[in-house]
Each structure stands twice: as structure tokens, then as C-alpha cells.
């Protein structure tokens, strides 16, 4: 163990210039990809909301379906914004155990809302586009195909969140 200690303490560390360190204080280059992905998705949803009414005959559908669709998409946009804000938050807790416990709870709530809102969006989407449509065999198959795609996306989303939560819970100094 003493050898390991010596190796650790002699480990060659890199060096950052004061200017580099200073730039890290304010901008968050690390999460640029995540932010970009969220901003892209949010922008697409906002665009959809702006044009769906004319493009997909919103005026021919009942008001409650328009409301449901806008509500579901709008909620995801708000949830994404909440995610961006949360990503910029400071980690809270007196010690590692506290930080991880708080982070894990927040992540579970965020994941549950994320999955539920996505499911709600798919359901509203299907309700809107199938309203007053006369079904035939072909359309039923298209509907089944779309439902399977949505289901696949939901399974994928749930798996991603479970994996993230497992990583945090696995590092929580359990047993104390």
C-alpha cells in the first residue's frame, strides 16, 4: 500500500494556465452537447406547436384535442428548460453521501416526470391524429406501427434513466 501511496502522490499532474482556469469559471463547455441536444429538441417542439394548427387542420379537431396536444408538447418544452436549469445547478450536500443522496432523489423525480410526460405526449399525439379518421386495414397497421415505434422509444428512455440512476445509487456509500 505504501508503494501505491507513493505512486499516487508522484502521479504526474497536468497544468492549466490561469487564463484557462478563469474561462472555466463561467462557461460550461462540458455540457454543450447536452444543452445543444435539449435546445434542438425544444426548438423542434416549439416549431411544431407554431405550425401544426394550419398544417394538420387543427381547426377541424375539437378544442380539447388541440388543448391536450399543446399542453403535452408545451409541458415537455418546460421540462427540458427545467433540465437545462438543473444542469447548471450547484451540487448540494454537506458531504459526498449527502450530495449523492440529494442528487439521486432529484434525478428520480426528474426521470419519472420525463417518462410520464413523454408517454402523455405520444398518447395526445395519437388521439389528435386519429380523431374522426375512418379506419381501414392499412390505417390500422400504420397505427400499430406508430404505436410500436413510440413503445420502443419509451423502453429506450426508461432504460437510459434506470441506467443513470443505477450509476448514482451504486456510488452512494450504501449501508451506513
Amino acid at each position: 500500500m505504501e508503494d501505491l501511496k507513493a505512486a499516487w502522490q508522484n502521479m504526474g499532474a497536468g497544468h492549466k494556465s490561469p487564463e484557462e482556469l478563469k474561462t472555466y469559471l463561467r462557461k460550461m463547455p462540458v455540457r454543450r452537447n447536452v444543452l445543444f441536444q435539449m435546445i434542438m429538441e425544444t426548438s423542434l417542439f416549439v416549431l411544431f406547436l407554431a405550425f401544426y394548427y394550419d398544417a394538420f387542420d387543427g381547426h377541424q379537431k375539437p378544442f380539447y384535442l388541440n388543448l391536450l396536444l399543446c399542453g403535452a408538447f408545451g409541458f415537455i418544452v418546460l421540462h427540458n428548460i427545467a433540465g437545462i436549469v438543473q444542469a447548471m445547478n450547484v451540487l448540494k450536500g454537506k458531504h459526498l453521501r449527502g450530495v449523492l443522496a440529494a442528487y439521486s432523489s432529484r434525478l428520480k423525480v426528474f426521470a419519472a416526470i420525463s417518462v410520464a410526460s413523454r408517454a402523455a405526449m405520444y398518447i395526445c399525439f395519437m388521439l389528435f391524429f386519429t380523431y374522426a379518421v375512418e379506419m381501414n386495414t392499412f390505417k390500422v397497421w400504420v397505427l400499430i406501427g406508430a404505436a410500436l415505434v413510440f413503445l420502443g422509444q419509451m423502453v429506450w428512455l426508461v432504460r437510459i434513466w434506470l441506467k443513470r440512476i443505477a450509476v448514482i445509487d451504486g456510488a452512494r456509500f450504501a449501508g451506513e
Partner: peptide, 9 residues
């Protein structure tokens, strides 16, 4: 504390 917390989450 901060560095390890960040690495873990």
C-alpha cells in the same frame, strides 16, 4: 468533496 461529488454524478 466537490471534486469527488462531481466525478461521481
Amino acid at each position: 468533496k466537490i471534486a469527488l461529488s462531481t466525478a461521481l454524478v
